[in-house]
Structures are given as C-alpha cells and as structure tokens.
Nucleic acid binder design. Structure first.
Lengths: 334, 334
DNA sequence: CACGTGATCTGCAACGATGTATCCCAGCAG
DNA sequence: CTGCTGGGATACATCGTTGCAGATCACGTG
C-alpha cells in the first residue's frame, strides 16, 4: 500500500540503504545521486514510516506528559508550552490524563505508555516520591509541579514558598491583616499546598501578624472548590479582609462567590491567586496573582528531559532547576 | 535491554508465538500453558512493545488531533473529552498544535504525523475544504468545529445557525434591540463566524428588528480580541444595549472591558457568548452562553473516526451528525 | 605501477511483534 | 486398525527501517 524506501530505491535506481542515507543526511553521497533519490521521493510521495524507524532505532522521539486533566487551564497552558518546546527540538508530546487517580498515575509510569515514549514529564498529584521511584522504570523522568519533592528525582521547581510569601506580603502591604487561605489544610507542610501555606505563614511572621488556623480552608483546586470554600468561610462568621486562593481557579471561584454575595472586591475584601492563567488578566476585577514562570518551567523541563534521553549533561547528578516567579498586581488586590 | 517475548517464551518453555497468542487472547490454549506464560510475564516484568506491534499490524491505536492551540479553553476542554472518549475505546490521542497556520495544518494532514496515527480529528481554521481534500491522504479523517463545511467530508456539526439564533432571540426577549456582534465581519457567510452571524440575522429578522452592520465588529477569537473590539465600538459612539460574543473568550474579554469602563452588566448592557467553557459559569457576572454539545461532539467524532478506521458502518456514505445545543442563561443576560 | 586513502554505495541482519501455514496428537467413527 | 477431526502448539516469513561491515572505484603518492 504505502510507498516504502524500497519503492523509492527502485525508482531512483539505487539501493535501499542509499535512500536511507539520503534521508538521514549521510555525508558522503554524490549530489547527483542525492538529487535522483529526492526526486523519486517527491514523485512517489514517499513518507518515512516512523513506526519502523522507532522499532529499529529504539527511539520514538515522543515525550510523555502525564497530568490530571487538560480542562484545567493551568495544565492546558503548560501543556501547550511544553508541546511547543518539544516540537522545537524535534520531539512530539503524547499526553496522558491521569484524572488525579493514583492507579492511573502508576499505570502511566510503568505501563505500555512508556514504550511509546523516550521519556516522561510527570505532574504527580496522588503518588508520593517513594511510589514514583518504585513504579518508574529506567527511562528518563522529569517531574513538574512540585507536589512531590525528593533529592533523588529530576524535577523543575516552582518557588512555591517564596512566591506565596510574596503574594501574602503584597496583601499585607495593602493593609490587610486577616487573610484567608483557600486550598490547604492547617497542618499541610508538603506538596504545593503545604509549601504555599508555609510561604504564607512566613510572610505573616515577617510582618508580625498572627497566624489564625480558622482562616485556612481546604478545598479542591477547582472553581467550585474555591466558591464552596469561601461560602463556608462567610457562613462561619469568621472575619477576613483578604483571600489568597492557592491557585487561580480557586481564587476566581471565590471571587465569583464573593461578588454574588454582594461583597465589594477589592474595597471590602482583596483577592489574590497563584498561576497567572490567561483568564486572570480578564477577570472582573482582574486578578492579582503570581506568575510561576510557566514558560521557563516548560522550557527547562523539556530541555532537561531531552538531555537525559540523549545522554547529554552530567548523567549522575540529579538536577532541580528553579523557575523565576513574578508578582502580577491587578485590580483584585492593588 | 528490555524483556521481549522471546525471553518470556524461553522462561515459560514455550514458543514465542504461544506467548503472542496468550497476550492476544487466542482461544485455544490449555489453561496450564496460559498460566505458565502469564507467570513468566509477571516474573520478568514483560511489557509489549507497542512500536513493534504497530509495525507488524499496521495499526498504531492512536488518533491524531489537530487544533490551533491547547491554551484556548474551548479546545482544551474538547481535547480532554476527546481523549477520554478515545481512551474508553482503547485508543490514545496525539495532539498537534497548528497555531492556526495553514502550512502547519497542511503538514499535519499529510506529513509524518499521519504515519503515527490510524486516523485524524481535525479542527481546520486556515484550510478550506478543497485544500483539505487535496492534502489529506487515504487515512480516515473527521472534521470538527465546522469552520469548513463540505458534503464530501465526514464531520461532526455544531448547530451554529440555530444556537446563535437562540442566543440572539434570548437577548431580544429580554428587550434588547441594539445587539452588537463581536468576532465576525459584516460580509461573512461561511465558517463559524459566518454561520453564527447568519443565525443572529435570522433571529433579528424573525423579531422584526433591523440589522445594522455598524454593530458587527470583527476581531480575533481571543480575550484581548473581544476587549479591543468592544473598546472600538464604545469609542465609535454607536449605541448598543447588548453584546453577543461569537465565542466565550471574546464575550469575556468584552465583559471585562465593559466593566473597566464602568458599564453596568446586565443593567445597561447584556452580554452573551458561545461555547459554555467552564469559566463562563464563574465569571462575574456569570456569562449567558450556549453549550454546543461539547461532550456529544467529542463522543460522536471519536466514534465516527474509529468506525472508519475499523471499517464498521457504511463505508461510502459521508456522515455528518449534528450535536444538540442548549442555552445557558446566567446573570450577564438574564 | 602497486598501493594506501577516502569517497561513495551496497548487502545483510536485526529491531520485536504478528499472520499464515503447518505439525502433532488425542479421540473417535468406520 | 486406519483415517479423520480439530484442539493446541510451533516455525518461518514479514512489517519498513537503520547499524554494521564491506565492496567498489577514482586518485594521488612514492
């Protein structure tokens, strides 16, 4: 059916291997021969069969990307950046949605999925470092999203603590003293939630403001999670003058609910988030948030993973580069 | 390196082909043999090499999905649904971002990308039907997103005209008479923009309201496009009491700009969109919009494509199922 | 003029699985 | 006892490409 190298070889009057050499830019080919082969390729409409190439070469030139769900804006935007970075380096990205389920994450790490990819970018949500190390095979693996932190694993880090502290400090500088936190529980110390909560605490301490666990409300990192959380807080009667959603959709969900309930933002209550998704800029009022360095994260992660795949760089040293964040001050918390 | 069927065969004391038979659930295998093979697989940690299987069988069990950019919420949500639908049927999805460039779309249609997939889901934006037919190979192809319409191509349709008319009718029913349209030009008749514009016109006509081209503002289908467009309209001094953004992000961008400029929504100006992205529900005010049947679109498209791939269904008849839409009335246009 | 050298091209095996044809054997009818 | 049947397992070729090891040939050198 499909045109193969053999057909091209016959048409060009050369050996199959010469066609292969032309395609792979082998150095020593007479220009005339090369041209004949290229003409034959053109004429027959030959396309290299990537499956066969993969089988023979042992490389698929595909990176796996495991994340919870593309419908989450931050992941979608990150995935888009990752795909572009990979594309620029000659790799494609195969996305696997884990739905935030441990089984699914595990099977993505070990399963057949791996045989389709040369390496994996993984945003773990349910598995811890130990489970990841146990489940992961020998193929290169780079973690993103820092829910997991471990000195044995390559990963690109977000400055959760510092960025969170910066947001909090900004709210404090605006005169807020009772800052509610949505998306973490009082005891959390690990994962994005824990790290961001700790950054919040550190900023409070630095400003001499007392930490009140009653202001810390756990919720799913979704819009409705944020809306529910703020509703519970309002209903509880606890006083607060600012809200820090540990990611943007939580903050936006809370913002929505606050406005529904007739609160004035930012006059009565300031709102801030974390991620700087595109939507944050166009919310009403626009959302103050922190940009975690998404483009840099994508770039570094892809670069690191491909270096591992291609054996460049120091093979044995675990790498954990950190992305630069920046505060985005907007209307919701000027 | 990796464990192959051969290793398993040796360990289980059977032939390579028997291992293959066990894995592919061949009927006539003695339970004892099967068990021995399964044990060996377990013990050695064997994983089938999907690349090799693909080469031999000629199927990759992957669907290609070509869209402009995952950072666009509607595409991200659609992609998520498509991936789930495909997964449920034993297929994976390989996403290719065209960036809305014709060259890129074309290369996705013909290029090596195709050899990795059994069929393609394509959301065309730059290519027209003729170009698509010319560029596409013989592999199954299903179009989505109806910028292109052609009786020769399989596609899943959105009821652009009807849904758009429904939104417009809703605004009219709310007493609005000067409804601005963002995201189309006066002359447009094809593509989502043209079809939706026509739906708008039809609803006006049905209500006996005159069509005013000055209310139709072209813009990119992005947040900033919507914001710019409404800014231009406001600056032009043309009077209007409602805005229909031809998709949600345009509407949300416009909504943002209206609020920035101190307009009251919906009291002074009502706003409606098209797509019902998750964000619409949590905007402030929440956005009235139309749900085009996204889940159904994903489901039908995947089903249709896989039927084509597997040769089920009527081979020769072009299929163009239409998804059911539904109006979502919210605060921005009650 | 024989010979080394490097440019140019070729043949064969192999990647890891599956399709096809075949073989072996137990059970059973004639 | 022979021949047939069909379950259960196997051997071999094959998918389309690339790695490796050569083969060939022109050319300059001593």
């Amino acid at each position: 059916m499909a045109v193969t190298m053999n057909d091209v070889a016959r048409a060009a009057g050369v050996s199959l291997k010469t066609v292969s050499n032309v395609i792979n830019d082998y150095e020593f080919i007479r220009p005339a021969t090369k041209q004949r082969v290229l003409d034959a390729i053109e004429e027959l409409g030959y396309e290299t069969n990537l499956t066969a190439r993969s089988l023979r070469s042992g490389k698929t030139s595909m990176l796996g990307l495991v994340l919870a769900d593309l419908s989450v804006p931050y992941y979608a935007e990150l995935a888009s950046d990752i795909m572009k970075a990979a594309w620029a380096r000659g790799y494609r990205v195969l996305v696997e949605q884990s739905g935030n389920e441990a089984d699914h994450e595990k099977s993505a790490l070990q399963g057949q999925f791996r045989s389709l990819t040369d390496g994996l970018l993984f945003i773990p949500l349910s598995l811890d470092a130990e489970q990841i190390i146990r489940a992961a095979g020998k193929k290169p693996l780079v973690l993103l999203g820092e829910f997991v932190q471990d000195p044995r694993l390559d990963m690109v880090l977000i400055q959760n603590h510092e960025a969170s502290a910066a947001v909090t400090a900004h709210l404090l500088a605006g005169g807020r003293r009772r800052i509610a936190v949505l998306g973490a529980h009082d005891g959390d110390t690990t994962g994005s939630n824990g790290l961001r909560l700790n950054g919040y605490k550190a900023a409070l301490a630095a400003a001499g403001v007392e930490y009140d666990p009653a202001l810390v409300i756990g919720c799913e990192w979704r819009r409705d999670g944020g809306a529910d959380a703020i509703a519970r807080l309002l209903d509880s009667g606890v006083a607060f003058d600012a809200v820090f959603g540990l990611n943007d959709v939580v903050a936006l969900g809370a913002l929505h609910e606050l406005l529904v309930r007739g609160k004035r933002v930012p006059d009565e209550i300031a709102v801030a988030g974390f991620d700087d998704i595109d939507e944050a800029r166009f919310a009403s009022p626009s959302l103050t948030t922190v940009e975690p360095g998404r483009a840099e994260i994508a770039e570094r992660a892809v670069e690191l993973l491909i270096n591992r795949i291609e054996g460049k760089g120091s093979a044995d040293k675990v790498e954990q580069p950190e992305a630069e964040f920046s505060l985005r001050v907007r209307q919701s918390a000027p």
